[in-house]
Amino acid sequence: MLPDLLHAIVLLGNYVVVPGLAYASQLALGALGITLVFGILRFANLAHGDLMAFGTMVAVLVTWQFQAWGLGLGPLPTGLLALPVAILAASAAALAADRLVFRYYRRVRSAPIVLVMASVGVMFILNGIVRFIIGPNDQSFSDGARFIIKAREFRQLTGLEEGLAIKTTQCLTVAVAVMVVAALFWFLQRTRTGKSMRAYSDNEDLALLSGINPDRVVAITWVIAASLAAIAGTLYGLDKSFKPFTYFQLLLPMFAAAIVGGIGQPLGAIAGGFIVAFSELTVTYAYKKFLHYMLPEAWEPAGLAQLLSTDYKFAVSFVILVLVLLFRPTGLFRGRLL
């Protein structure tokens, strides 16, 4: 009986917990960027997915170049080395978009929906640039040691029948996400500039009366959002693979995460990322084998025991989004109600 229980736990760990942690971290980083832009600039930036794709594309290209030069980090993926360049490129793109597009609508005090539409234009352009440079296809740029522990090794190590595999990229994702989030919170809570961003998000007019420079706050917000997007995108690309369209599709779960947590609330975006990621995985996981370990033989299900086919994972983020908007529009962390 006991090994069965252990097997069931390892099984869930392997297929739900470990990939879930990595996916949740990626979503959380993306959602943080969305929520910051929403908090400071007060519009839903539909170009965020393509900004992520743009940053990741730069990471992929730089990685290839480094690989050609024979530069690497040993067991760690070279992509990590390319990350600073990706961050710079994404920040530059975001600042350019703000200077050329968004700033004008801010100055004339357009309705938020006009800014959303402008972000559609930016989305088209970023999308075009990415496809123009790297094409619409899947690109793999992960190298280094693939696994920290392989399923087979785990089985040999523990003598269990089920294996637990942990990919390097998964570990890396979680580690980087924790560091980035810690740094972001330190920045927002402890530094003068970070506090001025929070003040601006809280009460724009009063922030102006206190002498806070709005242009500076906006610029810093873009840099942070773009950096988070580049990091999230690169980690996602390392973990799975890089395909521009997938990044556009990540928009929905990321927005769901930001709204679930409460828009404008960084802590909420992280919680939202975890809620969305784990809901997706638990709802689309086939529990057949899990139930095989947990139930007496007679009760075993004939089918896959999967609540929803994996292809419906959008539906999960969407349902969460709608439920939150209907029952608690401010989100879990009491974000801004707009």
């Binding site: 519009f43 839903a44 928009l251 929905l252 969407f318 908007l325």
Partner: peptide, 11 residues
């Protein structure tokens, strides 16, 4: 709200 409606219809 209009932004949320946009995201909802996208989904």
């Amino acid at each position: 709200r209009s932004d949320y409606f946009a995201i909802a219809t996208l989904g």
